Amino acid sequence: MLHTSLGAIIEDTRAAMRRAPCFQNPVSGLGCKFCGSKRSWVQHLRQVHVFLPRTKTGHDILASGTNHNSASGPILRYCPAILLTLYYEVSAIGVTPMIHLGLFFAGAAYILNGLSFLGVVDARSSSPLNTLVGLFFLAITYQLVWPLHDFTGPEKTEILLVAAGELLFGVTFLYFGVASFTGLSASNLGWFCGWAALVSAAITAVQMTWFGDVKSAALWFVWTVVFCALFAVLALTLERLTRPTGYLIIVAGFSTCFFPGGLLLLRSWELVPPSVVWTVQLSAITLFLLLSIRSSRIAPNDKPHPLPAA
């Protein structure tokens, strides 16, 4: 069979990658999770090379006369196709450490923003960190979505779900950063947080029911409550919830970002039982509810900032 288009080559390469053992499970920059080795990308490319069908596409131009069945044969046989396909298929997996790193540093932004709600730091001073973290999440979103040339298949759906979460965080942090620095009205931002709360609740349900990722669902459940609290403070101007929201953001910075992100970077997140994750997250929400009830009985002495960042 003689292939004549790059698309056909990519389809051949994608099929080969599905047959190659190490590509049946996620491959991260830290090594292959299937075989446990520290294989380089070139070594993984050579593995794909073994499974490629015998065709003349690209061979006559790039590697004429080579042994197609040899695992040590020139990887240049399908060099453009393999590199493109590898990028399309596993760039989202390769960006996984960036997601973990973003979650880790989002904790710092959360903590600083919570302090701004408590009046410890000026809201405007937190705008640089919010902007940088927001731009980082937007870059991750681009890295996740851009390689997708189609949106079919359950694996693509999961990537899109992750991208939706990253985009939600990116836009939120960037919005808060810009609004805090420029002094924009908090009302529109609060209504955006109301919409973000609905999106977060939907992602929580999907993580729980569709993908069965109960630990991620626990994190998204807390973020849903955080967005609801921001909506109440910024859009509905419930000033008595300003300080409880500040404490909630600080606790969420540790419980949903700093510690999970750090454990993911150390590849130890899987060792944490789901029951522990849910207990910690429900404790954070319970603390917020108790503080909210207490604040409703006491007239607030501190006025909120014109635009506390979150």
Rank of each mutant, 00 (worst) to 15 (best):
E166V: 13
V145H: 03
D122W: 07
H3N: 15
T13N: 08
A139K: 01
S28C: 05
P21R: 03
L236C: 13
L6Q: 00
F136E: 04
V90K: 13
L2G: 10
R46E: 02
F192N: 11
P74M: 09
E89I: 04
Q207V: 04
D302L: 13
R19L: 12
T152Y: 07
L30R: 10
I293K: 07
S216P: 00
A201F: 11
T57G: 04
A284E: 06
F51V: 06
A218C: 14
H100C: 13
Y142A: 14
Y175F: 11
S292F: 08
A186E: 03
W210C: 03
S185L: 11
P273I: 08
L287H: 00
A252S: 15
T242S: 14
F192I: 12
C22F: 00
V233R: 00
L118N: 05
S116T: 08
A163L: 07
E270C: 05
G107K: 02
L62D: 06
F258N: 05
A197G: 02
K156L: 07
R39H: 09
L62A: 09
F259V: 14
Y175K: 06
G183V: 06
D213I: 07
T224I: 04
I285Y: 07
T157I: 09
P97R: 05
L282A: 15
L264D: 14
P26R: 09
I159S: 08
R14A: 10
H44Q: 02
V277E: 00
G73E: 01
N67Y: 11
F192V: 08
V226K: 03
L52S: 02
S295K: 10
R124K: 14
W223V: 12
L168T: 04
F231R: 07
F173S: 08
Q143I: 07
L168S: 06
A109M: 11
I250A: 11
F151N: 08
D150I: 09
L234F: 07
E158L: 15
S296M: 10
G170K: 02
F231I: 13
M208H: 06
W220M: 14
I203R: 00
V171F: 15
Q143C: 12
Q207S: 09
L238I: 15
A217E: 04
V222F: 12
S200K: 00
R243Q: 12
V206I: 12
F221M: 05
F117S: 06
S200Q: 05
M98K: 01
L144H: 05
V145T: 06
N67C: 15
W210L: 12
N188F: 10
K38V: 08
R18S: 08
A179D: 04
A8W: 06
G253K: 03
I298L: 15
